[in-house]
């Protein structure tokens, strides 16, 4: 299959450095302390955050900082693949959850809440490539909505590499090309990489090109997240009658 036409267009009509359409909704669930839904193209994720609260398990809690707990689940109808009954914690799910958890623990100012626990529940509604990046971005929005202090704005992006071209925000069709795939999560303002995942063998030039594109992607996503958070605050402040200077 040809993934990039000679004119430089991808199968869904995007340019190689183009993101899919981003959409988000903050504060979607009333029972959670913070929540958000986020979609990139057809990938859609919803995250709810509870906490910081007293840790369920006293033995697990830490005296100098809060612990973050992440639960990841994918809806049966999320992907085209036939759903198979798996154990409660299959390996892929556990790994995705722990990746998000690590990124959040790096971002949240956990040392402000000793002995506390922050629960993050991730639900993937539709999986069409770049799912992990979407999970991190949604979690960032939900944690911000919960009013939990963070070091910096966290944003993530995925880059694929097919036919000697780095492709930003690859979808499911492009994933079937079995090319290398790189996930980058970074603190946008501090310019600090938090998570980099790349599992296949690539040349150093390709890796460099991919990382650079991922960085650009993260910054674009970060701008989008920031704009939406500000809009959300603006709306709520107006309703509550708080004057915004």
């Amino acid at each position: 299959m040809e993934f990039v036409t000679p004119e430089g267009l991808r199968r869904d009509g995007r340019r190689p450095k183009e993101l899919r359409q981003l959409k988000c909704d903050i504060g979607v669930l009333s029972h959670a302390d913070g929540s958000a839904s986020f979609s990139v193209g057809n990938t859609q994720v919803i995250v709810s955050v509870f906490g910081p609260s007293v840790a369920d398990n006293r033995a697990e809690s830490l005296t100098d900082r809060a612990i973050v707990k992440c639960a990841y689940s994918e809806a049966h109808f999320a992907s085209g693949a036939r759903w198979q009954k798996k154990g409660r914690a299959d390996r892929r799910t556990t790994e995705l959850a722990s990746t998000v958890r690590n990124a959040l623990e790096e971002t949240i100012l956990v040392d402000l809440f000793p002995r506390a626990q922050i629960d993050v529940a991730i639900q993937v509604l539709q999986a069409d490539g770049s799912v992990l990046a979407a999970c991190i971005n949604t979690a960032m929005l939900a944690v911000a909505d919960a009013g939990i202090p963070m070091k910096d704005m966290l944003a993530a992006a995925t880059v694929g590499y097919l036919e000697s071209t780095p492709l930003l925000d690859i979808n499911h069709t492009e994933r079937t090309g079995n090319g290398p795939e790189l996930l980058l999560a970074m603190h946008v303002n501090l310019q600090k990489a938090i998570t980099i995942i790349e599992e296949s063998a690539v040349t150093s030039e390709a890796l460099e090109a991919m990382t650079e594109l991922a960085e650009q992607g993260c910054k674009a996503v970060g701008r989008f997240l920031r704009e939406n958070l500000l809009e959300h605050i603006q709306r709520h402040a107006t309703v509550r009658g708080v004057t915004v200077k």
């Binding site: 504060g27 202090p149 605050i233 402040a237 915004v244």
Partner: peptide
Amino acid sequence: ATECGLVERVNKLVSVRPLRQR
């Protein structure tokens, strides 16, 4: 800022008040 919200200034003290928090 480490939170999203409104900036409050009282003399020299600068703080951010989030709209929703536990």
